[in-house]
Design a binder for these strands. Structure first.
Lengths: 168, 168
DNA sequence: CTAGTTGCAAATGTTTTGCACAAAC
DNA sequence: GTTTGTGCAAAACATTTGCAACTAG
């Protein structure tokens, strides 16, 4: 079982590596997909995409907006949402709806994974499990349904929060 | 693997049996839980709870509102939402957030189950699978986390929609 | 030049809340 | 007679959209 780990909240915009691609490589892909569709590369669009790829974690629109504002204070929420939707259509982004009011956006990686979400600190841990994938297929067969996608989410306390006192 | 099946949309308010309890039995439990908490039984509250228990499927607030209006046209949305929250606190209701904008509410049953959701007709099929529960525990152990709850959702086309032409 | 893009403000859809009145206990 | 509950309208919240001005190709 592979696992990744990332914290929410302030975090240096380090070089995010998801699978093999760097943020710069993903920008090239983004531009290519835009061209394929006859769409344009623009300043705001590039700023948002680059920040998104560089953050490379499960950001909310709000967090992304705040980060983008730092390098381009002119962009509005509408462009954030429009660009997120565009990145999704370009298959460069996954939209997740955990048990919060807002969506979280994740850089699309090579293989499917599921999530553990810490209910105290918000940390999101990714994991992969081939057994789960296999069982899902078998359930689908039993039900006679055709699967397009699926999600599995575990909720609870992460290793750190487990041992710490109830925070505030 | 056990499975249940239910369709969305108009449906006679049949006697819903989840596990062993009838709607009437659940009303008694509801009243008991209210008393424990020093809360009151009221007309609107009972109407909403009864309709919810009798429908016994994954209703949205909107659908429940419409059904309740039929027997008590006086109730407002606020009371619907307040009563849903109350039923949840009384452990008589589960709130689900599938990939739609709105929440769906389900009568709390005896054992945990997961869901398949048809992306065309909205049908929700419940299923139970002990292997999944076992694997979840093993994943939690690997991650060193403490689970409180989890969800697994499968999305796709149900057996019926699979063979039918793409509807309208 | 012209289609696509932006920012703003306003609209949307779902859920929550403030408040004066009404109903339980 | 308190305390809790209700309906209404307004607010809150995340997200989307209309539109006039702008910009990339």
């Amino acid at each position: 079982m592979a696992q990744g780990d990332e914290a929410r909240g302030p975090e240096p915009a380090t070089v995010g590596r998801r699978g093999r691609s760097t943020a710069a490589e993903r920008m090239l892909t983004f531009h290519a997909r835009l061209r394929e569709r006859g769409l344009k590369s623009t300043g705001p669009r590039d700023d948002i995409a680059r920040v998104f790829f560089e953050l490379s974690r499960h950001v909310s629109a709000e967090e992304l907006y705040a980060e983008v504002k730092k390098i381009n204070p002119h962009v509005g929420y509408a462009t954030i949402y429009r660009t997120l939707k565009l990145l999704k259509e370009c298959n460069l982004l996954f939209e997740r709806h955990f048990e919060e009011g807002q969506a979280r956006y994740e850089v699309a990686g090579e293989h499917h994974h599921d999530h553990f979400i810490c209910e105290r600190c918000g940390r999101i841990i990714e994991f992969e499990n081939s057994e789960i994938e296999r069982i899902q297929d078998s359930i689908a067969k039993h039900l006679g349904v055709l699967l397009t996608h699926h999600k599995m989410e575990l909720y609870g306390l992460c290793a750190e929060c487990r041992v710490k006192p109830p925070a505030p």
